[in-house]
Amino acid sequence: MSVTTAPDWVRRRTEPNWLARLFDYKPFLVFACLLPAVGLLLVFLTYPLGLGIYLAFTDTTIGRSGVWVGLENFEYLLEDKLWWNAVFFSVFYTAVATIGKFGLGLWLALLLNNHVPFKSLLRAIILLPWIVPTVLSAIAFWWIYDPQFSIISYLFVDVLGWRTTNIDFIGSAWPARFSLIAANIWRGIPFVAISLLAGLQTISPSLYEAALLDGSTAWQRFRFITFPMLLPILAIVMTFSIIFTFTDFQLVYAITRGGPVNSTHLLATLAFQRGIPGGQLGEGAAIAVSMIPFLVAATLFSYFALARRKWQQGESND
Protein backbone atom coordinates (compact mmCIF):
# COMPACT_ATOMS: atom_id res chain seq x y z
CA MET A 1 0.00 0.00 0.00
CA SER A 2 1.79 3.04 -1.23
CA VAL A 3 -1.21 5.31 -0.80
CA THR A 4 -0.76 7.97 1.83
CA THR A 5 -3.26 8.31 4.58
CA ALA A 6 -4.73 11.51 3.23
CA PRO A 7 -6.93 10.09 0.43
CA ASP A 8 -7.97 7.33 2.77
CA TRP A 9 -9.12 9.91 5.22
CA VAL A 10 -10.96 11.85 2.57
CA ARG A 11 -12.79 8.77 1.38
CA ARG A 12 -13.91 7.90 4.85
CA ARG A 13 -15.18 11.36 5.29
CA THR A 14 -17.38 11.26 2.21
CA GLU A 15 -19.03 8.05 3.33
CA PRO A 16 -21.08 8.88 6.42
CA ASN A 17 -24.54 7.43 6.20
CA TRP A 18 -27.49 9.49 5.14
CA LEU A 19 -28.62 10.13 8.69
CA ALA A 20 -25.34 11.68 9.73
CA ARG A 21 -25.33 13.77 6.58
CA LEU A 22 -28.87 14.91 7.29
CA PHE A 23 -27.81 16.01 10.75
CA ASP A 24 -24.90 17.94 9.35
CA TYR A 25 -27.18 19.84 7.01
CA LYS A 26 -27.61 23.04 8.91
CA PRO A 27 -31.18 24.09 8.12
CA PHE A 28 -32.39 20.64 9.06
CA LEU A 29 -30.29 20.65 12.21
CA VAL A 30 -31.69 24.01 13.30
CA PHE A 31 -35.19 22.76 12.62
CA ALA A 32 -34.64 19.53 14.53
CA CYS A 33 -33.10 21.30 17.50
CA LEU A 34 -35.82 23.90 17.79
CA LEU A 35 -38.68 21.49 17.17
CA PRO A 36 -39.20 20.10 20.71
CA ALA A 37 -39.04 23.44 22.50
CA VAL A 38 -40.87 25.55 19.97
CA GLY A 39 -43.38 22.80 19.30
CA LEU A 40 -44.25 22.40 22.97
CA LEU A 41 -44.50 26.14 23.48
CA LEU A 42 -46.64 26.65 20.39
CA VAL A 43 -49.04 23.86 21.29
CA PHE A 44 -49.30 24.44 25.03
CA LEU A 45 -48.64 28.18 25.32
CA THR A 46 -49.34 30.17 22.19
CA TYR A 47 -52.36 28.20 21.09
CA PRO A 48 -54.00 28.28 24.56
CA LEU A 49 -53.31 32.00 24.76
CA GLY A 50 -55.22 32.49 21.51
CA LEU A 51 -57.86 30.00 22.56
CA GLY A 52 -58.28 31.84 25.85
CA ILE A 53 -58.87 35.11 24.07
CA TYR A 54 -61.35 33.39 21.77
CA LEU A 55 -63.14 31.71 24.69
CA ALA A 56 -63.53 35.11 26.34
CA PHE A 57 -65.84 36.08 23.47
CA THR A 58 -68.00 32.95 23.70
CA ASP A 59 -70.41 31.58 26.26
CA THR A 60 -68.68 28.22 26.60
CA THR A 61 -69.48 26.17 29.66
CA ILE A 62 -68.03 22.86 30.75
CA GLY A 63 -69.39 20.17 28.46
CA ARG A 64 -70.85 22.55 25.89
CA SER A 65 -68.90 24.45 23.27
CA GLY A 66 -70.29 27.93 23.18
CA VAL A 67 -71.20 30.39 20.48
CA TRP A 68 -69.67 33.76 19.72
CA VAL A 69 -71.29 36.38 21.91
CA GLY A 70 -69.06 39.34 21.18
CA LEU A 71 -68.31 41.61 24.08
CA GLU A 72 -71.14 40.30 26.23
CA ASN A 73 -68.84 38.70 28.80
CA PHE A 74 -66.89 41.90 29.24
CA GLU A 75 -70.04 44.01 29.43
CA TYR A 76 -71.26 41.72 32.13
CA LEU A 77 -67.97 42.00 34.00
CA LEU A 78 -68.07 45.78 33.91
CA GLU A 79 -71.33 45.66 35.82
CA ASP A 80 -70.10 42.97 38.17
CA LYS A 81 -69.15 44.35 41.57
CA LEU A 82 -67.12 41.25 42.34
CA TRP A 83 -64.97 41.83 39.31
CA TRP A 84 -64.33 45.45 40.25
CA ASN A 85 -63.53 44.26 43.73
CA ALA A 86 -61.04 41.77 42.35
CA VAL A 87 -59.46 44.42 40.13
CA PHE A 88 -59.10 46.72 43.09
CA PHE A 89 -57.60 44.05 45.31
CA SER A 90 -55.27 42.78 42.59
CA VAL A 91 -53.86 46.26 42.06
CA PHE A 92 -53.69 46.99 45.76
CA TYR A 93 -52.12 43.62 46.55
CA THR A 94 -49.53 44.02 43.82
CA ALA A 95 -48.67 47.60 44.77
CA VAL A 96 -48.32 47.10 48.52
CA ALA A 97 -46.64 43.71 48.25
CA THR A 98 -44.16 44.97 45.65
CA ILE A 99 -43.23 47.99 47.75
CA GLY A 100 -42.83 45.79 50.82
CA LYS A 101 -40.86 43.11 49.04
CA PHE A 102 -38.48 45.53 47.40
CA GLY A 103 -37.99 47.72 50.46
CA LEU A 104 -37.24 44.80 52.74
CA GLY A 105 -35.47 42.79 50.05
CA LEU A 106 -33.12 45.64 49.24
CA TRP A 107 -32.41 46.12 52.92
CA LEU A 108 -31.65 42.44 53.36
CA ALA A 109 -29.43 42.47 50.27
CA LEU A 110 -27.48 45.44 51.63
CA LEU A 111 -27.07 43.65 54.96
CA LEU A 112 -25.85 40.50 53.26
CA ASN A 113 -23.41 42.48 51.17
CA ASN A 114 -21.34 43.07 54.32
CA HIS A 115 -18.83 40.63 55.65
CA VAL A 116 -20.89 38.31 57.78
CA PRO A 117 -19.82 34.97 59.19
CA PHE A 118 -21.49 31.89 57.63
CA LYS A 119 -22.57 33.96 54.67
CA SER A 120 -23.31 31.11 52.30
CA LEU A 121 -25.23 29.23 54.96
CA LEU A 122 -27.19 32.38 55.67
CA ARG A 123 -27.94 32.80 52.00
CA ALA A 124 -29.15 29.22 51.78
CA ILE A 125 -31.43 29.68 54.78
CA ILE A 126 -32.84 32.92 53.45
CA LEU A 127 -33.85 31.33 50.16
CA LEU A 128 -35.89 28.64 51.93
CA PRO A 129 -39.26 30.45 51.81
CA TRP A 130 -38.84 30.65 48.09
CA ILE A 131 -37.98 26.97 47.61
CA VAL A 132 -40.74 25.47 49.67
CA PRO A 133 -43.98 25.01 47.73
CA THR A 134 -46.05 28.17 48.13
CA VAL A 135 -49.19 26.30 49.01
CA LEU A 136 -47.49 24.48 51.85
CA SER A 137 -46.07 27.63 53.40
CA ALA A 138 -49.43 29.27 52.80
CA ILE A 139 -51.03 26.52 54.86
CA ALA A 140 -48.53 27.30 57.62
CA PHE A 141 -49.63 30.94 57.43
CA TRP A 142 -53.22 29.85 57.53
CA TRP A 143 -52.47 28.10 60.79
CA ILE A 144 -50.57 31.12 62.07
CA TYR A 145 -53.61 33.24 61.20
CA ASP A 146 -56.04 30.85 62.92
CA PRO A 147 -58.72 32.88 64.74
CA GLN A 148 -58.49 30.83 67.92
CA PHE A 149 -55.01 29.38 68.10
CA SER A 150 -52.97 32.00 66.29
CA ILE A 151 -49.49 32.11 67.70
CA ILE A 152 -49.26 35.83 66.96
CA SER A 153 -52.41 36.47 68.96
CA TYR A 154 -50.95 34.37 71.77
CA LEU A 155 -47.82 36.47 71.67
CA PHE A 156 -49.71 39.75 71.82
CA VAL A 157 -52.42 38.74 74.28
CA ASP A 158 -50.82 36.33 76.71
CA VAL A 159 -47.10 37.02 76.52
CA LEU A 160 -46.88 40.73 75.89
CA GLY A 161 -50.32 41.70 77.15
CA TRP A 162 -50.73 44.42 74.51
CA ARG A 163 -54.20 43.28 73.53
CA THR A 164 -57.08 41.68 75.32
CA THR A 165 -58.72 39.87 72.41
CA ASN A 166 -57.33 37.63 69.72
CA ILE A 167 -56.44 39.32 66.47
CA ASP A 168 -58.98 38.58 63.75
CA PHE A 169 -56.60 37.89 60.88
CA ILE A 170 -58.70 36.45 58.11
CA GLY A 171 -62.23 36.84 59.43
CA SER A 172 -62.98 40.28 57.99
CA ALA A 173 -62.09 42.10 54.81
CA TRP A 174 -59.24 44.49 55.57
CA PRO A 175 -57.29 42.41 58.07
CA ALA A 176 -57.57 39.48 55.65
CA ARG A 177 -56.20 41.60 52.82
CA PHE A 178 -53.23 42.72 54.85
CA SER A 179 -52.61 39.23 56.16
CA LEU A 180 -52.40 37.95 52.58
CA ILE A 181 -50.08 40.78 51.61
CA ALA A 182 -47.84 39.99 54.58
CA ALA A 183 -47.63 36.35 53.53
CA ASN A 184 -46.83 37.38 49.97
CA ILE A 185 -44.08 39.73 51.12
CA TRP A 186 -42.66 36.99 53.33
CA ARG A 187 -42.48 34.70 50.36
CA GLY A 188 -41.09 37.30 47.95
CA ILE A 189 -38.27 38.77 50.04
CA PRO A 190 -35.73 35.99 49.42
CA PHE A 191 -35.97 36.17 45.65
CA VAL A 192 -35.60 39.94 45.62
CA ALA A 193 -32.81 39.92 48.17
CA ILE A 194 -30.72 37.24 46.49
CA SER A 195 -31.15 38.75 43.01
CA LEU A 196 -30.26 42.23 44.23
CA LEU A 197 -27.33 40.82 46.19
CA ALA A 198 -25.97 39.44 42.94
CA GLY A 199 -26.37 42.90 41.47
CA LEU A 200 -24.64 44.52 44.43
CA GLN A 201 -21.65 42.23 44.08
CA THR A 202 -21.03 43.33 40.52
CA ILE A 203 -20.59 46.98 41.57
CA SER A 204 -16.92 47.81 41.51
CA PRO A 205 -15.48 48.68 44.96
CA SER A 206 -13.33 51.36 43.35
CA LEU A 207 -16.43 53.48 42.92
CA TYR A 208 -16.98 53.43 46.68
CA GLU A 209 -13.31 54.18 47.31
CA ALA A 210 -13.47 57.19 45.03
CA ALA A 211 -16.63 58.41 46.72
CA LEU A 212 -15.08 57.90 50.16
CA LEU A 213 -12.07 59.98 49.17
CA ASP A 214 -14.45 62.70 48.09
CA GLY A 215 -15.96 62.69 51.57
CA SER A 216 -19.37 61.24 50.74
CA THR A 217 -21.78 60.10 53.41
CA ALA A 218 -23.19 56.59 53.53
CA TRP A 219 -26.53 57.85 52.23
CA GLN A 220 -24.86 59.66 49.32
CA ARG A 221 -22.95 56.53 48.42
CA PHE A 222 -26.20 54.57 48.37
CA ARG A 223 -28.08 57.24 46.46
CA PHE A 224 -25.50 58.01 43.80
CA ILE A 225 -23.62 54.73 43.38
CA THR A 226 -25.49 51.71 44.68
CA PHE A 227 -28.96 52.66 43.55
CA PRO A 228 -28.17 53.76 39.97
CA MET A 229 -25.90 50.77 39.42
CA LEU A 230 -28.58 48.46 40.71
CA LEU A 231 -31.36 49.90 38.62
CA PRO A 232 -31.11 47.57 35.59
CA ILE A 233 -31.35 44.42 37.71
CA LEU A 234 -34.00 46.08 39.83
CA ALA A 235 -36.05 46.70 36.69
CA ILE A 236 -35.93 43.08 35.57
CA VAL A 237 -36.61 41.63 38.99
CA MET A 238 -39.44 44.09 39.49
CA THR A 239 -41.03 43.25 36.16
CA PHE A 240 -41.07 39.58 37.08
CA SER A 241 -42.23 40.27 40.58
CA ILE A 242 -45.10 42.48 39.46
CA ILE A 243 -46.27 40.01 36.84
CA PHE A 244 -46.25 37.07 39.20
CA THR A 245 -47.75 38.98 42.11
CA PHE A 246 -50.56 40.36 40.01
CA THR A 247 -51.45 36.92 38.68
CA ASP A 248 -50.90 35.22 42.02
CA PHE A 249 -53.29 32.42 42.76
CA GLN A 250 -51.89 29.91 45.21
CA LEU A 251 -51.52 32.05 48.28
CA VAL A 252 -55.01 33.51 48.21
CA TYR A 253 -56.59 30.23 47.22
CA ALA A 254 -54.85 28.41 50.05
CA ILE A 255 -55.42 30.93 52.83
CA THR A 256 -58.82 32.54 52.21
CA ARG A 257 -60.19 31.15 48.91
CA GLY A 258 -61.32 34.68 48.14
CA GLY A 259 -63.32 35.03 51.33
CA PRO A 260 -64.51 36.49 53.68
CA VAL A 261 -67.51 37.44 51.53
CA ASN A 262 -65.39 37.53 48.35
CA SER A 263 -63.37 40.46 49.66
CA THR A 264 -59.95 38.98 48.91
CA HIS A 265 -60.50 37.66 45.40
CA LEU A 266 -57.66 38.33 43.01
CA LEU A 267 -58.48 38.23 39.31
CA ALA A 268 -56.87 34.80 39.06
CA THR A 269 -58.87 33.26 41.89
CA LEU A 270 -62.07 34.82 40.58
CA ALA A 271 -61.34 33.42 37.11
CA PHE A 272 -60.74 30.01 38.64
CA GLN A 273 -63.90 30.12 40.73
CA ARG A 274 -66.08 31.11 37.78
CA GLY A 275 -64.30 28.94 35.25
CA ILE A 276 -63.54 25.57 36.81
CA PRO A 277 -65.86 24.82 39.75
CA GLY A 278 -68.47 27.26 38.38
CA GLY A 279 -68.22 25.80 34.89
CA GLN A 280 -68.54 29.18 33.13
CA LEU A 281 -65.45 28.78 30.99
CA GLY A 282 -66.25 31.75 28.80
CA GLU A 283 -66.65 34.11 31.70
CA GLY A 284 -63.59 32.76 33.48
CA ALA A 285 -61.56 33.24 30.32
CA ALA A 286 -62.85 36.80 30.06
CA ILE A 287 -61.66 37.51 33.61
CA ALA A 288 -58.28 35.97 32.81
CA VAL A 289 -58.01 37.99 29.61
CA SER A 290 -58.86 41.16 31.53
CA MET A 291 -55.54 40.71 33.37
CA ILE A 292 -53.56 41.15 30.15
CA PRO A 293 -53.84 44.98 29.84
CA PHE A 294 -52.69 45.39 33.44
CA LEU A 295 -49.75 43.09 32.86
CA VAL A 296 -48.68 44.85 29.69
CA ALA A 297 -48.95 48.23 31.41
CA ALA A 298 -46.98 47.05 34.45
CA THR A 299 -44.28 45.51 32.28
CA LEU A 300 -43.93 48.58 30.11
CA PHE A 301 -43.84 50.83 33.14
CA SER A 302 -41.18 48.95 35.03
CA TYR A 303 -39.19 48.35 31.88
CA PHE A 304 -39.16 51.89 30.54
CA ALA A 305 -39.23 53.76 33.81
CA LEU A 306 -36.34 51.88 35.31
CA ALA A 307 -34.18 50.42 32.55
CA ARG A 308 -33.72 53.20 30.08
CA ARG A 309 -30.05 53.95 30.66
CA LYS A 310 -27.65 51.66 28.84
CA TRP A 311 -24.44 52.76 30.56
CA GLN A 312 -25.59 51.29 33.83
CA GLN A 313 -25.33 47.82 32.40
CA GLY A 314 -21.56 48.02 32.78
CA GLU A 315 -19.08 45.77 31.09
CA SER A 316 -20.77 42.57 32.22
CA ASN A 317 -23.44 43.20 29.63
CA ASP A 318 -22.83 41.66 26.25
Partner: peptide, 20 residues
Protein backbone atom coordinates in the same frame (compact mmCIF):
# COMPACT_ATOMS: atom_id res chain seq x y z
CA UNK B 1 -39.83 34.93 21.68
CA UNK B 2 -38.90 32.15 24.07
CA UNK B 3 -38.03 34.74 26.71
CA UNK B 4 -41.38 36.45 26.24
CA UNK B 5 -43.08 33.11 26.75
CA UNK B 6 -41.75 33.22 30.30
CA UNK B 7 -43.76 36.37 30.94
CA UNK B 8 -47.07 34.64 30.22
CA UNK B 9 -48.37 33.58 33.63
CA UNK B 10 -50.16 30.24 34.12
CA UNK B 11 -53.16 32.06 35.61
CA UNK B 12 -54.08 33.28 32.15
CA UNK B 13 -53.61 29.92 30.49
CA UNK B 14 -55.27 27.44 32.78
CA UNK B 15 -58.82 27.81 31.47
CA UNK B 16 -58.05 27.30 27.77
CA UNK B 17 -55.53 24.60 28.72
CA UNK B 18 -58.22 22.84 30.73
CA UNK B 19 -60.47 22.67 27.67
CA UNK B 20 -57.53 21.47 25.55
Amino acid sequence: AIYLAYLVPPSILFIPLATM
